[in-house]
Amino acid sequence: MLHIYQASLNSRLLLGTARFPSPAVLSQAVRAARAEVVTVSLRRESSGERSGQGFWGLIRELGVLVLPNTAGCHTVKEAVTTAHMAREVFGTSWIKLEVIGEDDTLQPDVFGLTEAARILCQEGFEVFPYTTEDLVVADRLLAAGCGVLMPWGAPIGSGRGLNNLFGLRALRAHFPGVPLIVDAGLGVPSHAAQALELGFDAVLINTAIAQARDPVQMAAAFAQAVEAGLAARLAGPIEPRDLAEPSTPVLGTAFRG
């Protein structure tokens, strides 16, 4: 069971809702992923449109927890205002805080992020900061009041997996009691399994599932991968070695001596 703020989650797979081929496929993928938390966002809507209302109805029917994001925000002010708007519309104090610093990599602006996190935590939000694997930034975010961290695996949508294994291992080792969710950049289920094997508590997947040829089947594959990764972590993986160590008993080998 994963405890984040007041929530207790069985599922270690959080699912983004963007870029699916249709609302029906999105619904099926949420079920196939066995996700208990999905991310959502806010966008401008003209008075002639109804898409936002339909989308929100669909999400409510799924009966999952929603984690609104501040995607697209580049300043502290934008992120804080968006968080307030999201809290009212979605009826949750949870906010996946994104303050983007660089458009090619969508790398977090960690200075703006820590400032926005400080403001929002003081205002009673439960902040899920989208951050890098930087230990000092992580410290600042925790000091600001964040109860969970969401380090990137690789740039959003890149599908490259865990880019900085050393940094991610150090983060896990440095904050043993803090829920850590790898967010962004995972491409295939083995990446998710690896994150859980390293001791990360969960992963947030969007593009890798939504843009797969068969998103529902891929959602199921990711669900299996996180379960396998968690089970492996709990089972205690062996330490890698540089040299071979015979697995078959050596004592009593024929033709020796």
């Binding site: 809702t17 963007a18 991310t39 806010l42 966008r43 989308f55 968006t82």
Partner: peptide, 25 residues
């Protein structure tokens, strides 16, 4: 906030944002 809209007066040139739920990652 929705509860404050009735007492929020607009002025010429105000920038008003109206946002609705949408898909997000």
């Amino acid at each position: 906030a929705a509860s404050a809209r009735a007492r929020t007066a607009l002025a010429e040139g105000d920038r008003v944002e109206v946002l609705a739920p949408t898909q997000g990652g």
